[in-house]
Nucleic acid binder design. Structure first.
Lengths: 233, 233
DNA sequence: CTAGATAATACTTTATTCATAATTATGAGC
DNA sequence: GCTCATAATTATGAATAAAGTATTATCTAG
């Protein structure tokens, strides 16, 4: 894919990646103002590459640039989530459909192997590890779909979804439920039931949205103070 | 991405928009090298805002940044088109589905009014005007879907598709065929046949891909350069 | 005491300058 | 005469500086 881009990555890309991680970790929470010069001297670079990195992040939707006002981490509304999850269901559903049709027996075996950690970490109750294994499985499916642009679009939306806290898996029973959905999905794929796999993937995503909504409903949305960057050392 | 920028847009955004138009007009054709300093002094600005604009365009996929090598207008391969069009069919199909279900009678009337120019310009054989009217109709449908992120993703992909020449409508009979497809689509929407509208929209997009393929097959019987363009994020 | 206006401060934005890396051209050697 | 290596030129990438705009705080007037 990246034919000539094997050369050393530009500084602004490195910075963009580091900022992404800090945003995903909620070290830079949604709504937080991004202090350019503080961040620049923290990274030991000038503000120029930092600003270029912010342009990239803005195009990805992770931050919002307000002209003459500065840069803020994007805040997702419930409305946004209600828009994005069905869209992801559509796209990842298509992935499941295509992958079911195109996967070779060897690839099917690899996919099955990727499912095993899900079983293990669900049994162990390790939500973080389950989350990672879940991501790996979904990514593999996207790879098997064979459509680079489909994968790209899903990846972009997933980045945006990472703005929300990932603790929906800690909802009572959600881990087990998600595992059950994955079992059904894998079974449909292995049975070469493309339409079934698509439907199960869609249900899986929408079920994830429902879990998130339950979390948000439970947490009191009274005060959401958008604090600035938390100091950590 | 999208902020409520009622204030004056930043210079780099203006530059990005002007470059977009030049790219879409093929004044900067796919594969063309973008000369930063030449363009900067042509616009009477410094290289800094120009470079920031290029970062935005790179995130949109319109240009490809090769570290230490410069910036080039993205070239789409046939493979890319084979990936993107089915994806657009899926997304715009969903738009048609949702819009059919959600549109009020008044909105339905407005949509019907937007269809009229298509009839007129098809009869007049004005491919450019037909293209514009077609875009307007599709955008209205995306608006009616009520899903801002769906609209956003479609818009992003449409930008990329604008990298290709828009002369597929000049293919013998394509104008008439496209009109027929639109008639069927509108009829399904007005009949509140959401599934039918979705199917017709999907067929419409795939039909557009086929027309483009026919153009390319006719124009390039010799060697295809097929520079593959990788997307990064 | 409150509200509005002005001034000051701070941050974004753009420009200019400098350094580094890549490519091309020229010269020399085989 | 052709190929390879080295040097020079050009363009990209980063940093620093300067300017313009927005926001906030303070002071004055009603």
């Amino acid at each position: 894919m990246n034919s000539l881009n094997i050369s050393q990555p530009a500084l602004y890309q490195e910075v963009a990646e580091r900022l992404r991680l800090r945003i995903f970790a909620h070290e830079l929470p949604p709504g937080a103002w991004i202090d350019e010069q503080a961040l620049a001297e923290q990274y030991g670079i000038s503000r120029t590459p930092l600003r270029e990195a912010l342009k990239v992040l803005a195009a990805e939707g992770l931050v919002t640039l307000k002209p003459r006002r500065g840069c803020y981490v994007t805040e997702l509304s419930e409305r946004d989530l209600d828009d994005i999850f069905p869209l992801m269901a559509l796209l990842e559903g298509r992935c499941a459909f295509e992958a079911t049709q195109k996967a070779s027996p060897a690839e099917l075996a690899r996919l099955t192997a990727l499912h095993e950690p899900l079983e293990r970490h669900a049994a162990g109750g390790d939500a973080n590890a389950f989350f990672e294994a879940n991501q790996a499985f979904h990514r593999a499916l996207q790879e098997l779909s064979g459509n680079r642009w489909l994968k790209q679009v899903i990846g972009d939306l997933r980045k945006v979804l990472n703005l929300t806290r990932r603790d929906s898996l800690r909802l009572e029973g959600r881990l087990k439920q998600s595992l059950e959905e994955h079992r059904g999905l894998l079974a449909a794929i292995r049975a070469r039931d493309a339409a079934g796999a698509e439907a199960r993937m869609q249900a899986h995503l929408l079920s994830g949205r429902a879990a998130l909504a339950k979390i948000h409903a439970a947490q009191i949305p009274s005060s959401s103070p958008s604090r600035n960057t938390a100091e950590e050392s």
